[in-house]
Design a protein around this nucleic acid. Structure first.
Lengths: 156, 156
DNA sequence: TATCCACTGGACAACCTGCACACCGCACGG
DNA sequence: CCGTGCGGTGTGCAGGTTGTCCAGTGGATA
């Protein structure tokens, strides 16, 4: 069920240079191509690798503003709220959470002014009672997994 | 600077079936291969597509617990805190934000118990004054961009 | 010891990529 | 009205890569 050291190096390699194919990867890992291929297949079927989707930058799409909103939901309205939020394109991610607030939403907008519109659209729904928003100023650590992979591969 | 309808369809296609190559994509889009290739190149150089990194699932790596922590930082300690957090493998993402709290951290752990260890490590640093954590229970909308791409492509 | 499993090295055809070239239609400015 | 630039279309080619299969090897296990 775990990930061994070879898997770890393979994942790192792919994370850093996704363009390289199985053959090139096997060369750099110093193993036979069939091995690299088998490892990759296994990682995919095990679900460790979900896919190789293109990494799209919302900023380059014209949505340079990112924000996180914490929502408070009326009891029993969860499902409706989820459906509503899923219908808003600017909602990139939605989690239900413990603690103060019931949901955490990641959203983007074209500008700070546009963020107001997005928030209005997000909270303009019956089941949502309160929302508090935090605008992202900087992103010193963009979403990453390599360090985690390294750790997971370390402890066999 | 924008994204036209063809770009949008190309991105959607790649997002849904990353395995297909340029040739197959061009066939499905009903355009010449050279066109698809040129579009893809342009999207890459414009920064819309950052890359094709493997989409790794932390849960499958043995880290099924996700949480968000809001940190309060001592004035002037920002840089040190950033460096400290960047050194923690379980920290997947770090944002500096406005509003209550100064930073938002996304972290993972092997279990709820393990989360305690991770949080201790995260907040066990001099510049950090307070931390409030929200554990993710469900993730009804995983990180997505397709709807946004569609919208960006819609308004030419 | 027999068996299972992963890895190796090699081979094959089919396919895709990167690149180049000639040509066409359109928009724009002179 | 014409030249130019840009993006798209077809086409072609060499080289690399993929998917797949096979036989052989070594280690771990029952």
């Amino acid at each position: 069920m775990g990930i061994d050291e070879l898997d770890g190096r393979l994942l790192e390699l792919l994370a850093e240079e996704p363009r390289i194919g199985v053959l090139e990867a096997s060369r750099r890992l110093g193993v036979a191509r069939g091995t690299a291929q088998a490892r990759l297949d296994r990682l995919r079927t095990k679900g460790v690798i979900r896919g190789f989707g293109p990494d799209v930058d919302p900023a380059a799409l014209g949505y340079p503003v990112t924000a996180f909103a914490t929502l408070e939901i009326k009891q029993g309205q969860g499902a409706d709220v989820r459906a509503h939020l899923a219908g808003v394109p600017e909602v990139l991610e939605l989690h239900t959470i413990t603690g103060q607030g019931d949901m955490l939403v990641r959203l983007v907008a074209r500008s700070n002014a546009d963020l107001q519109r997005v928030i209005d659209r997000v909270v303009g729904f019956d089941g949502i009672m309160r929302a508090s928003t935090a605008i992202v100023m900087e992103n010193p650590v963009p979403l990453r997994v390599v360090p985690l992979v390294r750790q997971a591969a370390g402890d066999l």
